[in-house]
Write a protein that binds this DNA or RNA. Sequence first.
DNA 1: TTTTTATATTGCAATATTACAATTAATATT
DNA 2: AATATTAATTGTAATATTGCAATATAAAAA
Lengths: 110, 110
Amino acid sequence: MGATKTDHFTDKQNTIATLAKAIGHPARVAIIEYLMKVDSCICGDIVNELPLAQPTVSQHLKELKNAGLIKGDIEGNTICYCIDEKAIEKLQNYFGYISTKLINKKKDCC
Amino acid sequence: MGATKTDHFTDKQNTIATLAKAIGHPARVAIIEYLMKVDSCICGDIVNELPLAQPTVSQHLKELKNAGLIKGDIEGNTICYCIDEKAIEKLQNYFGYISTKLINKKKDCC
DNA sequence: TTTTTATATTGCAATATTACAATTAATATT
DNA sequence: AATATTAATTGTAATATTGCAATATAAAAA
């Protein structure tokens, strides 16, 4: 085997997993943070900001886009990517939900 | 190649990536949600809750533990695992931070 | 003490990810 | 039109992940 059994889990669980997985690489965290920092969406200099080759960055961008974390496309010969706020909100809500649930939990160990 | 270049990124970026990566699998999302639902930390029935074999679940638990998302250990012959609230808080704060940053951003595309 | 129960570890096959050189595609510039 | 620029795609090697059968470990129950 080796393939994730996505069909055995709920859509919500798969959605969270997909989003989290996309952020689960420091290069993609760095990309998100760079997109956040820059005012404009025209971010042709992402490659210069990262210690990775252009094809690698392009691949990471593709993964972020497939996961729904960023949106946009090329415009002329510059890329135009920006964070999809809805995805970030989903994650924020999810972890917020877990946090509040944990506060109301009685603990008998750990 | 094939190995992630963790040393090229900041500690914070690597921390977020490690935590997100650990959640980046539906089985581990399901585990987190189960630990959240159950009142006690004694969760010997995680295997029965998941559509995966016992060694696979054990491996996922190990990964969650290595990433710092859950804590605990075996107690007698039952496992005693529970969510590490600090890790969830880190994620919640991180995505909250991104969200608020995005609200104050001017957008010219996407 | 033997057996049962619960979880971890090992070994392995299948698949996925990471990274990059080389190339392609497509727009900009000259 | 020819060239330069920018980013995607392709191909490929190295590494990591996923999943499980078999086995090991260790405590509880008989």
